[in-house]
Amino acid sequence: MDARAHSSQEVLSTLQALVADDLRRVNQVIIDNMQSEVGLIPQLAGHIVSSGGKRLRPLLLLMSARLCGYQGRRHVPLAACVEFIHTATLLHDDVVDESALRRGKATANAVFGNKASVLVGDFLFSRAFQLMTRDGSLEVLQILSDASAVIAEGEVMQLLTSNDLETNEAAYLRVIESKTAKLFEAACRIGPVVADRPRSDVDALARYGMALGVIFQLTDDILDYSAEQAALGKTIGDDFREGKITLPVIVAYERGTEDERRFWSRTMEQLEQSDDDLDHAIGLMRRHDAFGETLRRAEAYGNTARQSLAGFDDGIERRTLDDLISFCIARGF
């Protein structure tokens, strides 16, 4: 394990350790609320919930509440709610994308079929809304229901921009702010809300969450073309094969020659791909510094995230959230 990987693992370990008791309670709430007399529901939901995710979104909610000095228990079921929304979107996304693998493991739709995955995704959305209403706060309900609507809009926007090389950076950023970063933002917003902190603190942590979510997706889009990921046995090139227009593609296309643009049109718009095309695409991205350009965007969002934390007391919570920015950026190297 290299120094970056070791450092990244330390960030996650510190984050998980700080909220360990709450995280155990969140996991219990998740297990309890996956139960159903319909046996396929807990079986399929358990498949994806236990598939190795970092629980990053619920961790952000727990950590933002801790940063704001919250001493109650409302944040625990709300963190589970955020994870259910995330899990439901993953189930639906994998069906839409016809994905067979996630984190190197078979997706739920590959194991159980598309119909079951969509319906259990609906069940998890419903469970999330049950948890929201039990909390009893209209403000929390509005935050999470608004986020759910925006996420759905983001997925539709991505569908419309797929296979369309006229997609520019601004349109791409609107997609990832909606489909990925909005739930990060909501998770970070709820912490200060339940802690009854001033609106300025709520808005600051919301900005932090939005910026962090954009960074996370930017680096995810780099990792889809990463040789290091391939060496770890993870699938690469899914975005390429599906014709998803991400920032590395946008940069390489905009900076490319006419011949290179014809290549991108054939492979991404017409989806006429041969075995060698992925390697050629990666070569073009490197030639035009598409990965470096994408990382520079991530670093700019990192500055926004750090500035958003500036008004909070210096301590282990704020330092860990600051380190998490570096962790998310370092994923792209």
Rank of each mutant, 00 (worst) to 15 (best):
M1T: 04
H6N: 12
H6F: 15
E10A: 10
V11M: 08
S13L: 15
R24E: 14
Q28Y: 06
I31W: 14
I31Q: 15
N33I: 01
H47P: 01
G52A: 10
G53Y: 12
P58L: 09
P58I: 06
L59G: 08
L60N: 12
L60Q: 11
L62W: 06
M63I: 09
M63Y: 06
S64V: 02
A65M: 03
Q71W: 02
L78F: 11
V95W: 06
A100W: 15
N109S: 15
F112I: 00
F112G: 00
N114K: 07
K115H: 14
S117R: 01
D122N: 12
L124P: 00
F129R: 15
M132K: 05
R134V: 13
D135N: 08
S148L: 05
A149L: 08
V150Y: 06
V156H: 11
Q158C: 01
Q158W: 00
T161F: 06
N163T: 12
E166Q: 13
T167N: 01
I176Y: 03
A195T: 07
D196C: 14
P198N: 07
G209N: 08
D224Q: 10
D224F: 13
Y225K: 00
A227T: 10
D238V: 13
R241P: 09
M268C: 08
E269F: 00
Q273C: 02
D279E: 15
A290S: 14
T294A: 03
A298P: 02
A300R: 14
Y301G: 03
G302P: 07
T304S: 11
R306E: 09
G311K: 10
G315Y: 01
S326P: 08
A330L: 08
